[in-house]
Amino acid sequence: MKRSKRTNSSASSKRSRPKRQTTAELCSLQRLMAAAVMRPLTAKQRMRTEWMDDTPTKKVAASFIKPNKRLTSFERLEIYNRQYWFRVQECIYEDYPGVRAVLGEKRFQNLTIAYLANHPSTSFTLRNLGRYLSEFIAAEPKWTGDEIELSRQMAQLEWAHIEAFDNEARTPITPADLQGKDAGSLRLKLQPHIVLLELDWRLDDYLIALRENSRMRREASNAMESFITHDRTQTIRPPKRKPVCLAVHRYNNVVYYKRLKPGQYALLSALHHGDSLAEALGQITPKQASQVGVWFQDWAVLGWFSRR
């Protein structure tokens, strides 16, 4: 079918109205700006002068951002690029004082830049920013020098602390809930705020000592970052290499690192993985089994098992 020829008037009206942005173009613009904003800074904390394809970044910036009398397009974009990195690095800095202390400032900084470049936030809250740090350390050990396993386990403990701090506490089960239940089919759920860890170092003591003098985690806000000034990493005696099992949990809204005996850890881990009570009891020795009643009394007081 032939398309009708445009009239002069419609052509003229088309000329007088500038082309309007489409939603697809809006999306492309946001992708471009986000890529620029989230791109790692140089060692001097400035925006990179070369784009991913080696085009000068100033040319890329000028393609979508207006300059003004005082700032070039590059400089205006750089404000956002720097703010992004100040914000996310500050968040990891505050949430992982233990990893920082283990690695030292410089290696920690390099690790966090590499981590954040590989794992940008996929959550509306900065609380979840470090969720994959321990996995990243295992996957890319080059960032942690000789302290791969120590820093990985410390990252695990510090993430567990975050989980224990504000995860849900469900209604605990009571002895009445268990009456008449068959151990062969009874499955006990651990509270969502409990994280079980098996560590090669006594990192609980180490982290407690570190946190005694450190700041609380910052709140979210809509303020821009001033230039960051940090307290120097504290000098704490290195963690003692001795295996320890922990339950990181919350009681009366305070986070605790409760040490577990190997049998307790085995039993709780089995329950946590969905084993029935009878199956979980099969994970421990007869000697350990003789103490199970006392263990469960303690855990019941702490409200560790939930109804769903």
Binding site: R20, T23, L26, Q30, V37, Y80, V88, S121, F124
Partner: peptide, 16 residues
């Protein structure tokens, strides 16, 4: 694309 900058980035002032 599900990635968060945690910043308040300016809008292009367009009808779309």
């Amino acid at each position: 694309d599900g990635r968060y900058t945690h910043d308040l980035l300016p809008m292009p002032y367009t009808f779309a």
